[in-house]
């Protein structure tokens, strides 16, 4: 294992460095290894950026999947901003212009599904997030289609000393096989929380978690696809929300308790010994 693959090393490094500053670490790694630029930018999830659609006035989210050079496509108007061919877009910062879905406007059928999916996930967003921004981008595949569902919500420091930010990135592929379709979903949630106070000092809990799921589901029509993706994303987010709750508030607290015991260790030891003696005497 003298020479590990540089891409794997870069991902391992990003798994270890402070996840609150992934963007800065990513820029640094790219400066060290420019060859990895496109691969890293398309596989490392970062907090999403919000932009307002000039045509509709609605907010949408930016990612690699709706990007063409320096332009981004709004899911509400299907228009690029800045418009393509204006001489501004074209070649990305890495000098290359590859990447899934980049610059691609989906075909007529898939765009129709994209419009419906954006409406459906706008409802989903309102019901679960009661605010925030959502965007869905789809693109054609040879045997079906693929897409990304994005959700973002921030809670500002309105009076309280705590703040938080949630970004969901669900990338999926749907392979159509007659009356069923195979769905493969990779979901990442980036969650950042912080709080401070006089007796607490500063606390920052930041990170990201990724999970995958694959399922074959029956599908009759294009609405069925959206319903299937909707259920998969809804179930995944419920699972991940529970997981995040467990890790951020349960596991972190347990590790702190493992480092330092609030109670006296010798008393705890004595109690355990007494308990053992009682159990031992009951057995006799």
């Amino acid at each position: 294992m003298a020479s590990a693959d540089p891409f794997d090393s870069a991902l391992d490094l990003l798994r270890r460095l402070n996840p609150k500053h992934t963007a800065a670490h990513l820029a640094n790694i790219i400066a060290l290894a420019p060859d990895l630029t496109e691969d890293l930018l398309s596989s490392v999830d970062q907090p999403l950026t919000v932009r307002r659609c000039k045509q509709t006035g609605r907010d949408y989210l930016l990612c690699d999947y709706n990007r063409d050079g320096d332009s981004y496509r709004s899911p509400w108007s299907n228009q690029f901003d800045p418009p393509l061919g204006s001489g501004l877009g074209g070649v990305g910062p890495g000098g290359s212009n590859e990447g899934a879905g980049e610059g691609a406007v989906p075909g007529e059928r898939v765009r129709r599904m994209e419009v419906q999916a954006n409406e459906a996930f706008d409802v989903y967003r309102e019901l679960y997030y009661e605010g925030g921004v959502s965007s869905v981008y789809l693109w054609n595949l040879d045997d079906g289609f693929a897409g990304v569902v994005l959700l973002k919500k921030g809670s500002p420091q309105n009076g309280s000393s705590s703040s938080g930010e949630w970004d969901s990135i669900h990338v999926f592929e749907a392979s159509e096989r007659g009356r069923t379709s195979n769905y493969r979903l990779t979901s990442t949630v980036i969650l950042s929380l912080s709080t401070k106070g006089a007796s607490l000092g500063e606390v920052d809990l930041s990170g990201n978690m990724t999970r995958q799921v694959e399922q074959d589901l029956p599908v009759d029509n294009d609405e069925g696809h959206i319903a299937n993706v909707g259920r998969l994303v809804e179930d995944m987010e419920l699972k991940m929300r529970n997981l995040l709750q467990e890790v951020y508030f349960g596991k972190a607290k347990d590790v702190v308790g493992d480092l330092r015991s609030i109670g006296s260790l010798s008393e705890g030891q004595r109690e355990r010994e007494t308990q053992r003696e009682i159990i031992g005497s009951m057995r006799r």
Partner: peptide, 29 residues
């Protein structure tokens, strides 16, 4: 940990909609 879980975390995303039911995706359109 408790106040972040009950406060900032809860304010970002609900566990279930107010209706306490998952979405009926067949009707979502």
């Amino acid at each position: 940990f408790t106040s972040l879980s009950e406060g900032a975390f809860k304010a970002l995303r609900r566990q279930l909609p107010v209706t306490r039911q998952k979405i009926e995706w067949d009707k979502v359109a």
